[in-house]
Design a protein around this nucleic acid. Structure first.
Lengths: 115, 115
DNA sequence: CCCATGGTACGAGAGTCGTCGAAGCAGACG
DNA sequence: CGTCTGCTTCGACGACTCTCGTACCATGGG
């Protein structure tokens, strides 16, 4: 193995193409919000197979595509698996503080509802 | 007139019933986002008729209902018109900083796209 | 080379959403 | 009273979303 396997590449929106409405819509689904939350809590990258979601595999693919096409996550193939990472820098540059407040809000709501 | 005209009353969710997903979904529509932006820029209350939206009146009613039922705005009848106000305090208590970062992001995006 | 594994593509079905027009109701004002 | 204004209600329609199952492809290991 070299450093990166750039065999198959995925289409991502440029930072300038990311739309606020798209990001908010992407985050307004419980499954996707939990993905983002998990991703934010982890170090850097997570394989799709890491997530334990209450939906089938094809639905998982769909949600990851929504997240990627809205500009929330960046995805790259690594052998047979696909790695996912939040686009923290791009989002922070475009919408300062937005991601963090959503993450905090999501954590607060989870705590509020499970308490 | 007394102080308030409590003739017809609207159903609003309690603060504890406001869900993050609902708020994000409510804000992910361009028409509703522009309403919220306008509301945030104004002093306190605005009549529905004040807004100049690119949709018909029945669609406007629909969008205001979504905003109200998701807990983003509070509405009250005042004679023949209906007054709208952001639920800043409730949202701030539940999701600190969220509304402000969305408003800032929306303003930034508008500036970015019209520049 | 074969096959297991991780993810994708393609319908398809149920449900929701945004939009509209037409008809209706509640106050305000003559 | 009659009428105007502001908003609502009620279908209805097309579009999109979330979900699934099945079939499929691509990589890596025996």
């Amino acid at each position: 193995m070299t450093d990166r396997d750039t065999s198959r590449t995925l289409a991502h929106p440029e930072a300038a193409e990311i739309r606020l409405e798209g990001v908010l819509h992407a985050l307004s689904d419980p499954v996707r919000l939990s993905i983002v939350l998990d991703l934010a809590g982890s170090a850097d990258d997570l394989a799709c197979s890491h997530f334990d979601l209450p939906v089938t595999k094809s639905t998982t693919t769909h949600h990851f595509r929504v997240l990627r096409e809205s500009g929330v996550v960046r995805q790259a193939y690594r052998g047979t698996t696909k790695l996912n990472a939040l686009r923290r820098d791009d989002l922070e540059a475009l919408f300062p503080g937005l991601l963090d407040s959503v993450l905090t809000a999501a954590a607060a709501e989870t705590a509020r509802l499970t308490a």
